[in-house]
Each structure stands twice: as C-alpha cells, then as structure tokens.
C-alpha cells in the first residue's frame, strides 16, 4: 500500500492546510454561501469584479469541510483571478477535476464541485438570473 489515497496528493493536502485567498473582501460585488448538508461542508465565496463588471478582480473564500472541498475552493480561488464571468459560467465538473489533478471517486464529486457551484450561483444571483433564496447544494 502506498501512503494514503491517490486523491490526497501533496497539492490537495497543501491547499487544505494552507488555503489560498482565505478570508474576506472589503468591497465584494457579490457574496454567496453554499453547503452540502450531509457532509456539513459550507463554503462562502466573495468576488470583486473590474469596473466593467466583466472580469474577476479578486476572490476570497471561507469555509468548513473536508480536504477535497476546501482544497478545491482554494485552487478555484486562484484560477478565477482574471477570469471573465462568462468563463466562470462555463466551468464544468471536468474542469474542476482537471484543476485538482487527481481522480475524484464518484461519491466525492459533490465535495469537489461545491466551491465552483457557490461561485457560479453567486454570479448568477448578482446578475439577477437566480433567486437568492435558492441555496447552493451540490447534492440532491
């Protein structure tokens, strides 16, 4: 047996233990919170846009959850910087697993995609395309 799961390569553990862009923005354009109730994973994403409102200028997140969800949010926060809101909309599950660089077991995909879902839903609410009462959940 090797050391631990393939899912827990150094990069994942590093982002879990030292999350990037962890904290709060002073003047975010939007803030959104989402959760996976059965895991207890909760992520809050804050995004600041450029003056045109088209490109992501800054991202901060806070949260509580498993290594996969937290590392994924941390890596996403780096990836989002400089991305257009359209590009954010188009991020799919494959993009997230590619970013993580490991195979995510089927039962854990919902952990991996929580951060992306929170960012996308936050952006849609900001544009008035989603009811803010709809809380983000990546499980049924």
């Amino acid at each position: 047996m090797g050391l631990g799961s393939d899912m827990y390569r150094q990069q994942i553990l590093d982002h879990y233990k030292n999350p990037r862009n962890y904290g709060e923005l002073e003047d975010p354009d939007f803030t959104h919170v989402g959760e996976n109730p059965s895991c207890g994973d909760t992520i809050r994403m804050q995004v600041a846009l450029d003056d045109a409102g088209e490109t992501i200028d800054a991202v901060r997140f806070t949260g509580d959850g498993c290594a996969i969800s937290m590392a994924s949010a941390s890596m996403l926060s780096e990836r989002l910087h400089g991305m257009s809101v359209e590009e954010l909309d188009e991020l799919d599950t494959d993009d997230v697993t590619e970013m993580l660089g490991v195979d995510i077991s089927p039962m854990r995909v919902k952990c991996a995609v929580l951060g992306r879902q929170v960012a996308q839903d936050g952006s849609k609410i900001h544009r008035g395309e989603l009811d803010p009462d709809d809380r983000t959940k990546t499980e049924e």
């Binding site: 047996m1 090797g2 631990g4 799961s5 393939d6 899912m7 827990y8 895991c39 959850g65 498993c66 290594a67 996969i68 077991s105 854990r108 952990c111």
Partner: peptide, 13 residues
C-alpha cells in the same frame, strides 16, 4: 481529518 476524507483513505486500505 474530516470523516469523509478519513473514509476515503481507509477505503484505500
């Protein structure tokens, strides 16, 4: 260690 991470690692064993 979150319980889900623990279970994933235990699964490898």
């Amino acid at each position: 260690v979150h319980a889900h991470d623990l279970s994933s690692i235990l699964n490898d064993y």
